[in-house]
């Protein structure tokens, strides 16, 4: 018996080891691609395979980063864009969930409003940019509004359909215990839709960045979107690529934060 246990244990150890090796290989390949991409870029630019004026090079981008970091101007732009994105993201998501709850609360409201939601959803929201800027003034309020408006309708639709998908028998159980409509929402509908809400958070991270960057293109005062459009106008593509890289890094960080939130909120079955 004991002996058998030992061989079983060994088998399991071998399995765990295999998993580890597999994971290490994945990491190595990811690193290889990363290094290959930047070396190739640098090399191609040095050897003039690509036009260094248009496509810059990693070393120029890095030098620009050192300059901008030391004179402090970088932090201002990052600060503005990141705060706007977070605000747009939160407002868009929360308003979407709130609107979904409203639709769930009143079936007749949801029936009346349905065609408008469909049209608003199909509409390219960034096209509203100029109107929003005229209405709210060319400042951060308009930019945040763009970040929010781009995700609010889709969040509403996705979360509302999650609210409707719940098994009605859960509601039956709650009502048989004397629950009101509000209690049913709090105890069943809302928590059952957590996974959907988290996945729409993930989508909204990306969407908010789109709204904010386009907003900054249009308002053109501050922020990473402004740096891109400015770099484009003065033909400084090192600045454009640099801003793109910074955006990529911060978008990835925000995405990671949402994933952490998911791990906290949703209990994984044992």
């Amino acid at each position: 018996m004991n002996k058998k246990n030992q061989t079983d244990q060994k088998l399991h150890e071998a399995y765990v080891k295999k998993l580890k090796i597999e994971k290490r290989w994945i990491r190595i390949w990811q690193l290889v691609i990363f290094i290959a991409f930047f070396s190739l870029w640098e090399l191609a630019s040095k050897l003039k395979w690509i036009d260094p004026l248009l496509f810059s090079s990693p070393s120029k981008v890095w030098n620009l980063f050192i300059d901008k970091a030391s004179d402090g101007s970088l932090w201002v732009h990052i600060n503005v864009t990141v705060l706007e994105t977070i605000a747009g993201f939160l407002i868009g998501t929360l308003a979407g969930i709130l609107l979904a709850a409203l639709l769930w609360w009143s079936t007749s409201f949801s029936k009346v409003i349905d065609p408008y939601l469909v049209i608003l959803n199909a509409m390219p929201k960034v096209a509203l940019g100029p109107i929003i800027i005229v209405a709210l003034g060319p400042g951060y309020v308009a930019i945040i509004a763009m970040g929010a408006i781009i995700s609010v309708i889709i969040t509403t639709l996705v979360v509302y359909s999650a609210f409707q998908e719940i098994d009605q028998n859960y509601i039956k159980v709650l009502k048989s215990l004397g629950a009101s409509k509000a209690v049913c929402f709090k105890e069943a509908i809302f928590p059952a839709s957590f996974p959907t809400m988290i996945s729409s958070l993930k989508v909204n991270v990306g969407l908010s960045w789109v709204g904010i960057i386009v907003g900054e293109f249009l308002v053109s005062k501050q922020g990473l979107g402004y740096l891109i459009i400015y770099g484009f106008q003065v033909f400084d593509f090192t600045l454009v690529l640099f801003s793109l890289l910074v955006i990529a890094i911060f978008a990835a960080i925000m995405y990671q934060l949402v994933e952490q939130l998911e791990k906290r909120l949703i209990r994984t079955p044992k």
Binding site: V173, L177, G178, E187, A188, P191
Partner: peptide, 24 residues
């Protein structure tokens, strides 16, 4: 009311499921 399936709320512990009645 007891239904065909248990319809215990998966995000609540067994104790919290039982305490739904008093909570409501």
């Amino acid at each position: 009311y007891m239904l065909q399936q248990d319809y215990l709320f998966p995000w609540k512990s067994i104790k919290d499921n039982v305490l739904l009645g008093p909570k409501i």
